[in-house]
Design a protein around this nucleic acid. Structure first.
Length: 301
DNA sequence: AGGCGATCCTGAGGGC
DNA sequence: TGCCCTCAGGATCGCC
């Protein structure tokens, strides 16, 4: 799933190839990929036809293509969304679920850009670049720039599980299920720990989040299933995952200390959550109520 | 406040 | 081999 590192990888690739390029034509194949408020507008206008692409921004998981004429297009890749960039003239397999495409010509060549999203959790939103700040008002600070003070403030009055807060885009923008689990394992914190009990560790948590996200950006993000960069290539940070998706496999941190502990799976904040029961000991009073069984279906089958 | 479930959607993967 | 069922997840909404 594209989270901050994957979206940043996409942003960098698009910025490198398309800055200063002109959108010759744009086509929308599914109108419901636009946010509801945009469905009445002219699609090709919304998709920046005729514009010169000036800048590519990102906040959290949201990407913006900003045109020189004041138009902008906000892109959310959802779960399975891809922006694929093909050089014109090369045979480009058109994938199913291609919902929009652009013909673009610029300093580095001519391209076809495609928005592909099988599960359609992704979306596009047309706006003016002057409205971008307002559009992003609902998002918390970008996770790569998260300060200890921001995080401490968010945690201070919250009794939710720490993982729920990490996933809350209005608190921290960019963290999704993968990097929440990976950061918590590196911190040795159980995902169910209450925020207000961890305020004194906000600095460490912010630092660990930034570090895990930066490492992932350097490796082009994680490809678990669907994610590809604009060239169609995989990320490689999944090779560094310590817990995410590793249910039943040995904890590598424990293995280094001569212990054999298996990664477990539970549900926190409605999400599949992977953790090491030794590195991340359970709280004495798990948040989320009195249910004694906070883990379930720990074994395959 | 925040947990929880439903919703949107498709494809992967397990079970039989 | 192939069909069917379940499940995964980001964001949002309504309910409790």
């Amino acid at each position: 799933m594209p989270e901050l590192p994957e979206v940043e990888t996409v942003r960098r690739a698009l910025a490198a190839a398309l800055s200063g390029a002109e959108v010759i034509a744009a086509s929308l194949h599914r109108r419901d990929i636009l946010r509801p408020a945009d469905r009445g507008v002219d699609p090709s206008e919304a998709l920046l036809a005729g514009a010169t692409l000036a800048r590519f921004h990102r906040r959290g998981k949201q990407l913006v293509m900003e045109a020189a004429d004041g138009r902008a297009l906000l892109v959310h890749l959802g779960m399975s969304g891809r922006l694929l960039l093909h050089r014109s003239g090369r045979p480009a397999p058109s994938l199913p679920h291609t919902h929009a495409h652009w013909t673009i010509r610029g300093p580095t060549g001519a391209y076809r850009l495609e928005f592909v999203d099988p599960r359609r959790f992704g979306w596009l939103r047309a706006l003016r670049s002057t409205d971008l700040a307002a559009a992003w008002e609902a998002l918390g600070p970008d996770a790569l720039e998260l300060s200890a003070a921001d995080l401490a403030e968010a945690m201070h009055r919250s009794r939710r599980a720490i993982k729920a807060l990490l996933l809350d885009q209005s608190m921290i923008a960019g963290v999704g299920n993968i990097y929440a689990d990976e950061a918590l394992h590196r911190l040795g914190l159980h995902p169910s720990l209450r925020c207000d009990a961890l305020v004194d560790r906000a600095g460490r948590i912010a630092t660990a989040l930034r570090a895990v996200l930066r490492s992932a950006v350097e490796l082009g993000g994680s490809t678990v299933r669907d994610y590809r960069d604009p060239a169609g290539d995989f990320g490689s940070f999944q090779l560094r995952h310590r817990v995410y998706g590793r249910h039943g496999e040995p904890c590598r941190t424990c293995a280094r200390h001569g212990r054999r502990t298996l990664i477990r799976r539970m549900v926190v904040a409605g999400r599949g959550t992977w953790f090491c029961p030794v590195c991340q000991p359970a709280p004495r009073r798990p948040s989320g109520g009195s249910k004694a069984l906070s883990t379930r279906r720990e074994h395959r089958g």
